[in-house]
Computed example of a mutant assay.
Amino acid sequence: MVVMGLPWLLTLELVLHAGCFICGIIAAASLTFTQGHFAGQCILYGSVHYNTSSNSLILENSSSTSLCYFVSAISVCMAIYCISLILYWIYSSCVEDEVKRGSVLLNVSLGVCGLLLFFLLVSGCVLRIGRDSLCLSVLHNVPSISNCEEAQNKTWASPNTGNQFYTGLYSAERSVWVSFFFWVLILAVVVVQRRQAAGEDAEWSRAETEPFFHRPSRTL
């Protein structure tokens, strides 16, 4: 994505934002579809029981739905922020001859980067630990399976289907960690832009004050 009128560092940042937008949508959609297969229940940190009479899996315990909503909300908010920023700078490049971001906006961007990195780290850990806890219960209670993914093909007690539950949780977690990596790169790009802006501000300040402090040399 190369936009006329945008500095190359800002263009690179927007490309990374586009990647974060895609990852956010995938993470939120994967987790939402997984909840849908379990009648809206959040299966993170859940426990599974195997019913020998019906040869079906029963979700005994599940987490509060707010836990899954929290993870999905972080991904959705990140996606909205990214697409809004992309559209804003594309619009700015169309209406302005030269697009330049000041120190204040760069400082705000640094704050947003730090905040989103924190929430993505929390979301990634919740997804990873919650999925592992569920899989430990599956492996412990369900016979004749060697890994958690095989439980997707088992019959689940109604109203749960269990269809692609492991794939959904894995896709959501992977998307969150990819987003986290992209935001680390975005943070580095913003820091570079912040240093460039600070250097330009210092040069402008020296140029403005030089006529007042410049002393003509004495001639003998």
Rank of each mutant, 00 (worst) to 15 (best):
residue 108 V to G: 00
residue 108 V to H: 06
residue 108 V to I: 15
residue 110 L to N: 06
residue 110 L to W: 07
residue 112 V to H: 06
residue 112 V to Q: 11
residue 112 V to T: 14
residue 113 C to P: 08
residue 113 C to A: 13
residue 114 G to W: 05
residue 115 L to R: 00
residue 115 L to H: 08
residue 115 L to P: 03
residue 116 L to Y: 13
residue 117 L to R: 09
residue 117 L to C: 01
residue 118 F to C: 10
residue 118 F to E: 11
residue 119 F to D: 04
residue 121 L to D: 07
residue 121 L to T: 14
residue 121 L to M: 08
residue 123 S to I: 12
residue 123 S to E: 05
residue 124 G to K: 08
residue 125 C to F: 15
residue 125 C to S: 14
residue 125 C to N: 13
residue 125 C to K: 13
residue 126 V to F: 02
residue 126 V to N: 00
residue 127 L to H: 07
residue 127 L to R: 02
residue 127 L to S: 03
residue 129 I to T: 08
residue 129 I to H: 04
residue 129 I to C: 00
residue 129 I to L: 08
residue 129 I to E: 06
residue 131 R to F: 11
residue 131 R to Q: 11
residue 131 R to A: 07
residue 132 D to H: 12
residue 132 D to A: 08
residue 133 S to L: 12
residue 133 S to I: 14
residue 134 L to M: 15
residue 134 L to D: 07
residue 134 L to K: 05
residue 135 C to D: 09
residue 135 C to P: 03
residue 135 C to E: 11
residue 135 C to V: 15
residue 136 L to C: 09
residue 136 L to P: 00
residue 136 L to E: 15
residue 137 S to F: 04
residue 138 V to E: 12
residue 138 V to N: 02
residue 138 V to A: 13
residue 138 V to F: 12
residue 139 L to A: 03
residue 139 L to R: 02
residue 139 L to K: 09
residue 139 L to P: 08
residue 141 N to K: 11
residue 142 V to E: 05
residue 142 V to D: 03
residue 142 V to K: 00
residue 142 V to G: 00
residue 145 I to N: 11
residue 146 S to P: 04
residue 147 N to P: 01
residue 147 N to E: 13
residue 147 N to M: 10
residue 148 C to D: 10
residue 149 E to I: 13
residue 149 E to K: 12
residue 151 A to S: 15
residue 151 A to K: 04
residue 154 K to G: 02
residue 155 T to F: 05
residue 155 T to H: 04
residue 155 T to D: 08
residue 156 W to S: 03
residue 157 A to I: 11
residue 157 A to H: 12
residue 157 A to L: 14
residue 159 P to M: 06
residue 159 P to Q: 14
residue 159 P to V: 08
residue 160 N to L: 06
residue 161 T to A: 07
residue 162 G to F: 06
residue 162 G to I: 05
residue 162 G to W: 01
residue 164 Q to Y: 14
residue 164 Q to I: 02
residue 164 Q to F: 13
residue 166 Y to E: 00
residue 167 T to M: 12
residue 168 G to L: 08
residue 168 G to I: 05
residue 169 L to F: 03
residue 169 L to M: 08
residue 169 L to R: 04
residue 170 Y to P: 03
residue 170 Y to G: 00
residue 171 S to V: 06
residue 172 A to H: 02
residue 172 A to S: 15
residue 172 A to E: 10
residue 172 A to K: 01
residue 173 E to W: 09
residue 173 E to Q: 12
residue 173 E to M: 09
residue 174 R to M: 10
residue 174 R to S: 09
residue 175 S to T: 03
residue 175 S to Q: 01
residue 176 V to C: 07
residue 176 V to F: 13
residue 178 V to G: 06
residue 178 V to K: 13
residue 179 S to T: 14
residue 179 S to P: 07
residue 180 F to C: 11
residue 181 F to C: 09
residue 181 F to Q: 00
residue 181 F to T: 09
residue 182 F to N: 06
residue 183 W to F: 15
residue 183 W to A: 03
residue 184 V to F: 13
residue 184 V to W: 03
residue 184 V to P: 05
residue 185 L to K: 01
